[in-house]
Design a protein around this nucleic acid. Structure first.
Length: 294
DNA sequence: AATTCATGCAACCGCATCATA
DNA sequence: TTATGATGCGGTTGCATGAAT
């Protein structure tokens, strides 16, 4: 027998999340961590599918989210990674601390694609597009008229510098990048992704950078947050739960609070505060650090 | 000022893969 | 081993907002 279904979708709420819902989800995860998304909405008192809760947490509420505009350096890195990995957004996102696959995907579709087209680069193949009209169909059906036409627009002159940097990026790719690229773009559906495992392992090793540290810190925080409760009225209380597990977590919490990349934690509070305008999260910060000092 | 259009982003959907009974 | 559910991922949609007319 298999497991129970994720959720019956009858009576579940959809659409944008309310502040109260965010509040419940954050409160629940801080108290309990993440074990089974299927149970999260039930236990947190949310009329949402577990999948929806997961998405909301990962894309919006996670404490290690960076948010804010992408820097040019980040954009260049995305382009470079995309040329190697194709539309494997989660893989690309794994190279960026605090960026989600959804965020990168959106940014690619709304900004970078256009930027590349302006520069005369096909965003799919990462090869220069021919300046004359081409019978080669660009894979972008909706606005493929922009790539060749706009490359002659006045904007072109202003993008010379950008173009140069892009060329450097593209030229810096390995010689075998083209094969690599052809694979990644063509295999997307045809070849099982497990065949890329070796490459992925290498990628993972390479990406064992501050992202990893951040996540480790975050795990510590999630663990340590097990005895926090949002009690409403703009304050967070520490529960009197002193079970072994929680105590263990708390001890690691105390010792790790200073290690927990303060900037990331601080950033989360700042972000959530700015996003939700919750005065209570300012209190949370204070309480967290009070706990850390105990 | 009102309307239309374009853009960006959060959220949903469906599929693939992994995990479990 | 097989069937089924959970999770993760990428593609797509729909809404909110700002710009243009």
């Amino acid at each position: 027998m298999g497991r129970q279904p994720c959720c019956d979708k009858v009576g579940l709420k959809r659409g944008p999340w309310t502040i109260e819902e965010d509040h419940k989800l954050i409160n629940f995860i801080l108290n309990n961590g993440i074990h089974c998304w299927r149970m999260v909405p039930k236990l947190a008192g949310l009329l949402r599918c577990g999948k929806s809760c997961r998405l909301r947490w990962i894309n919006y509420l996670r404490p290690d989210l960076k948010r804010g505009a992408f820097t040019e350096m980040e954009e260049d890195q995305i382009i470079q990674l995309h040329s190697r990995l194709g539309n494997r957004w989660s893989k690309i996102a794994s190279h960026f601390a605090g960026r989600t696959d959804n965020e990168i995907k959106n940014h690619w579709n709304t900004r970078i694609k256009k930027r590349l087209k302006l520069l005369g680069v096909d965003p799919v193949t990462h090869k220069p597009t021919t300046t004359t009209t081409t019978d080669q169909k660009t894979t972008d059906d909706d606005d493929d008229q922009t790539s060749t036409l706009e490359s002659n627009s006045p904007k072109e002159s202003s993008s010379v510098q950008e173009n140069t940097s892009l060329e450097i990026i593209l030229e810096s790719r390995d010689d075998d990048m083209e094969d690599d690229h052809n694979n990644t773009n063509n295999v997307k559906k045809d070849i099982p992704r497990t065949e890329d495992k070796v490459e992925e392992q290498v990628e993972e090793l390479i990406s064992m950078d501050d992202t990893t540290d951040l996540l480790k810190n975050y795990e510590l925080m999630m663990c340590s947050g097990a005895n926090l409760e949002f009690v409403g009225g703009g304050s967070w209380n520490q529960e009197s739960n002193t079970s072994t597990t929680v105590s263990a977590c708390s001890s690691s919490f105390s010792s790790s609070m200073e290690e927990i990349s303060d900037p990331s934690l601080q950033q989360w509070f700042d972000n959530v505060d700015s996003i939700l305008s919750w005065d209570c999260f300012n209190q949370l910060e204070e309480n967290l650090f009070q706990l850390g000092g105990k």
